[in-house]
Design a protein around this nucleic acid. Structure first.
Lengths: 332, 332
DNA sequence: TTGTAGGCGTTATCAG
DNA sequence: CTGATAACGCCTACAA
């Protein structure tokens, strides 16, 4: 350490003085710190990380940065990370399993202290993440989640959220609600369908299988379903979508076909993306609090690091709320 | 290196074998690689970075991740980074100068190989970045840019873009165009105003100072200007905004006041945020190609690293294009 | 073709 | 209270 040389003292002492180690006398602390400033000393964080095998860095993997949806989760993570002296190394999976796997290894090889991941749509095998979890590296799952009960996860209130939306649609007088889901493998698909079914049961409404549709989130797969429903003798009078983006595709398609929203068909989404506020008509949706999901995920990581081996809640559910806009307001 | 021990050979040989060093015999290379796989060997990237003082990491600082605007630039950076074996360490300045300064130091102390930065609105002093540039660390500026000519920058065609928009508004029959800018200190403010002025001069239209307004991007400062214009005897018949977000604020405000867009007042933005496509009426804007700005920035970093001390173009301008939607279409 | 030695900057351990 | 020494894992000279 140059600053030690300049002062004729050992690097050890300098290091300790800078860290306010109790052993060091006040006078040396002061003079060392002055010298540090004078020499514009900046510790080499790489060397420090290497020495303590602690990088003060978390890795974050999200599907993409194209929409506000995941980026605001990343924003939440980064915000809390920075408040707590952590850096953020980020990757995008582009919704591809193989990218995700590669990213996980890259981050682990880079010795991140923990991994915060929102899995890709394709991901159904979680070995790539479980190996590291078993080695004791904190892994936090957010939004789209590993069903494995060992993994700490931060999720939206999927079932309750869907229940709120469906209940609302029924209140608006809808009699036949179509639901557009993601792939069957996703937990969010499963949980939101559950909410849909719960409310139907509660009101003793018979469920029509034709009203339950799975997609891979692509535009075509979504439109295909809508068209199929439009061709039916008894069309649905409401469509509940797995995401706001999906809902926006649906709204545009319906408008193109000159179908009145919500008069003929009400539409609701899930997530509360910024977009939903801007589109015409405004989109009714469930606000999952994306930014808060990110913040909480990072907080969970911090808690786990502090707790070390203490008892830890595995699943953290983020409270959201129904956002009613014109796309579902049949009664004004 | 454990794998050396396991095979009874030196770590050096192992390292070289894994790196396909020409000195090593094919047979040892093969056996070492087999052993590496068998033992699931992963190099410690932290140690490697430390040893060669090369982290294979770039730091990126953006104002925030709330809107798609900056996040898609970050997405572009990360995409190209990952294609070239670089990692991305990211920070948000939240549009605050002090945060930005702190982030720069953090990233530099973390020994990133380069810094890609989009300055905060507040930033007018660039010393925090120039120190490191002078030390030879590649610094790339994107979108909002350091006026210092030494810095490599990747920017939108601000002046030309503004020219296209203004020309278009005039074509639509607008006679009096208000322009809402950002803070005076920003280069984008200056350059887009220049485009505005250029086209006015070209058509020999006198410029009214009252039609040129500066804001700090806040909702209130924007609405205040619009209200001032609305109170005038001769209102503008078009408003050109420094950003799409600004334009959306304007559109909403005008709609609240029951002013017809574009019939009474046409509105145009700049940037081509996703939002502009969703709002009603669709927003006319100039597409700056956010993602490409990010990609190019990373590419410029890579070029600089390869070129080492070769001659380098300082300013890279990304071609964009006019996006005409209903908010400005007076003639149908 | 392979091995040995040293260093990267920081911190922890142990000794004084 | 302070200092010497070793260690973190990898890589590059230099030596054999």
């Amino acid at each position: 350490m140059d600053i030690g040389k300049a002062m004729g003292i050992s690097a050890t002492t300098v290091s300790r003085a800078l860290h306010d180690h109790p052993d060091i006398s006040l006078s040396t602390k002061i003079s060392v710190k002055e010298m540090a400033i004078a020499m514009d000393y900046h510790p080499n964080l790489l060397a420090r990380s290497f020495a303590n095998s602690q990088s003060q860095t978390v890795g974050v993997i999200i599907p993409n940065l194209e929409a506000t949806f995941f980026s605001s989760m990343l924003g939440g993570v980064q915000k809390v990370a920075s408040q707590n002296g952590y850096k953020v190394l980020m990757c995008q999976s582009n919704e591809e399993y193989l990218n995700e796997v590669e990213n996980v290894h890259l981050l682990m090889d880079s010795r991140v202290d923990g991994l915060l991941i929102c899995h890709s749509i394709e991901t159904t095998n979680f070995d790539h993440v479980n190996i590291y979890r078993k080695r004791g590296i904190p892994i936090i799952n957010f939004y789209r989640v590993n069903k494995d009960s060992e993994t700490i996860s931060v999720v939206a209130k999927n079932t309750e959220g869907a229940e709120l939306v469906i209940e609302h649609l029924l209140n608006q007088g809808c009699k036949k609600i179509g639901i557009i889901l993601g792939p069957r493998s996703l937990l969010i698909t499963e949980e939101r369908l559950k909410g849909y079914l719960n409310i139907h049961k509660k009101h003793l409404i018979e469920i029509e299988q034709s009203m339950i549709a799975y997609t891979d989130y692509t535009y075509n797969s979504i439109i295909e379903i809508v068209d199929r429903w439009l061709d039916m003798k008894e069309r649905p009078d409401a469509i509940f979508c797995i995401s706001d983006r999906t809902a926006i595709y649906v709204i545009r398609h319906l408008r193109k076909k000159n179908i009145q929203i919500p008069a003929e068909i009400a539409v609701a989404g899930f997530g509360n993306d910024l977009m939903g506020e801007l589109i015409e008509p405004g989109l009714t949706t469930y606000d999952v609090q994306t930014s808060k999901i990110g913040e909480t995920s990072m907080q969970m990581f911090l808690d786990q690091v502090k707790n070390e081996f203490g008892q830890i809640t595995k699943v953290h559910t983020i409270e959201g709320h129904l956002v009613v806009r014109e796309s579902s307001l049949k009664q004004k």
